[in-house]
Design a binder for these strands. Structure first.
Lengths: 214, 214, 214, 214
DNA sequence: TATGAATGAGGATTCATTCAT
DNA sequence: GATGAATGAATCCTCATTCAT
């Protein structure tokens, strides 16, 4: 028969209702990216979110659900915006690619969300269902969006004839790799080896231009 | 009192002396890549290597040392060979790049070693010392090798003037990404989305050629 | 900032003042009997009583007090009535025993209170103080009541000379066992094995008659 | 990254192989009976069995399996013996009943196994599958064994015509109740209220004799 | 008075590590 | 050398209890 102790409730003024789950997933994203899923203790997530261990369970059924929420919620709005942007654009296809790459960097690459790809790559095998979701909702739509721009460019005579799927991957690869790098090995590299994303983007876009020009 | 059965020893004929550690790291590599460091139990590594849990400790001080050995040993010879190849080559720089990329795929990309980059990306933050080793011994030498070929091409008038560091990254990125993909999300993707490495390599080399031609 | 909704109060018309504690102990009795003390969550008791978790603490200091109240309150009136009945009766001792047994079944055995003996048997060791209360207020008075009737029967020449304490136990045992059975294993037994209490009571009273006849 | 510490292995001389599981279930039986299933900590079971928490998991998958083993293993041999005894007996039916009751007390009632009925009564609702097993393997066979003796007595003209199922229950009830009592409330009762099993058995057998005589 | 979000001690379970055999 | 039983620190999760509203 155990004696149970207190439960000092924190003042809640000045907290928007339901900001809580977002604060938790933000904390969880940071820690999962930093340490990986298994090495992240729920207690640490709670501490970083400014709440207690038990409070997590008011919002998420268990650690796995927190993980899923981190992945799912991180992607809903940014992705939609990117796709819309691509579909509405009227200018040249190369300009569109530039906008996409730069928008991607601004909205994801330079934010904590840039940690998601690393997270999914690390845990895909342990969360196949979630990996499937990620592939279906992020990877393939993203690839298709780029591939469509390539097709558009070819159709308009702006690009030479290339296989759009492969081109999409070649276009995305450097950006993705930088995101992975910055969320993993970057901190251990000498500063001299560090990559300046702005410079890289410029160089990359020039490569793309040359590779696609008719 | 009663005679205890001696440990079931594996047959050792036909086993080169000290093949044991290599068998352990091979088993560990496969499991670390599949599940991640934390989710891999020593018992599973032992089982896959055909030995007992306790025997692991005859060859490695602890789990961390197994992990380090996996990363370190996986890279010693392949890297050296690649570098040598690059330094001895006398033909055109574009041909050299092609050889390098194809050699890389043959010696690493299509073997279990292709799992190492995923592993390091996932665990870099938890093993900074090892990450440092990886950056120093793999990433930077690799980048430098490619950059040097680019410089050689520029010097010989085969390539236009580009920033060699950035070019090296752009050259390596698609290959790396395919390795990461195949060791993580690939299994969850529809087959239609799958990438054929041979085709991709060809397309990529054509991009590189166009991007670098003067 | 924002107006918080006041606690959803239950309609209170038609509720006698302080019906609340009784509703709580009724809910608690049902759940304690069904699942045992430890496996019963306060949240479930609250839900069954139609109130919130916190409200429990307006009426009871803690879980233990709820448990004690369940046991204590369940027994106050029925017991007193039984004793009174026994003391006032003027007919034959065998008739009195029959009335007692049948009254017991009507007032306790066929109501939720029949779960109390199971509860006390299960938790006696964890609540010695309460067990003591139960023994003092229920078991021993009950035994004494029956023993006194036996003594009365012997004194009046209706019964043969037997040890009254032991006789009391032999008289009570089958009834008690049926109560325990119906609150525990009965639900898992094939219907064929089920015991009809009415039939059993009749058979039992016949045994008692034969066992006690001079 | 956590540091794991030792594991002092205990000397194992003088321990029969596979005595371990029995020691665990013995310890578990004692504690489950004393405190109930939920209130018993695995750590306590381990301590009482003289082993560590982790060692439990070498022999049982989880707490529930320990509980099931306690119930199942406690009953295998005693039950078989009782049934055999009953089937082989050639003397009078009343003598057979006496032997059964006394044998029951000697083999179960006066041993730690006497705690099992209390345990099952307390936890039946939480372990329906196990309760079913208990009913099928213990309660019903036990009842049938007694009922058959009653039928035998009637057939041989030793007993009057009674309903055998009901008679079986009336015969078993006092013994069972004493077992429950001794494993629950007894420790809280004044010694004066305590029941001497030997005396009770004698009195009970006399009641049975009178109740059944033609 | 009534609520239910928040708390954190406690317990089941896992697994790296040790060591007697 | 090789084994695997034993260990116990570490972590997820539950739920009795508190208290701001």
């Amino acid at each position: 028969m155990s004696k149970r102790l207190p439960g000092r409730a924190l003042p809640r003024w000045s907290r928007r209702k339901d900001a809580r789950p977002d604060e938790i997933t933000a904390a969880a994203l940071a820690l999962f990216v930093e340490r990986g899923y298994a090495a992240t203790r729920l207690e640490d997530i709670a501490a970083r979110a400014g709440i207690s261990k038990g409070t997590l369970y008011l919002y998420f059924a268990n650690k796995e659900e927190i993980f899923k929420a981190v992945v799912r919620e991180g992607l809903v709005s940014p992705l939609a915006e990117m796709r819309e942007l691509a579909e509405r654009y009227a200018g040249s296809s190369m300009e569109l690619l530039r906008m996409l790459v730069e928008g991607w960097w601004a909205r994801i690459g330079s934010t904590p969300l840039s940690g998601l790809p690393k997270l999914m790559i690390a845990e895909a095998r342990n969360f196949p269902e979630l990996a499937r979701f990620y592939v279906d909702e992020v990877v393939e739509p993203g690839q298709r969006t780029i591939a469509r721009i390539v097709e558009r460019g070819i159709a308009r005579g702006e690009f030479r004839r290339v296989e759009p799927q492969g081109a999409a991957l070649l276009i995305a690869a450097p950006m993705l790799l930088v995101m992975l790098w910055r969320n993993s090995l970057a901190c251990c590299a000498r500063s001299s080896a560090d990559i300046d994303p702005r410079t890289l983007i410029e160089a990359h876009l020039e490569w793309v231009r040359r590779s696609l020009e008719p």
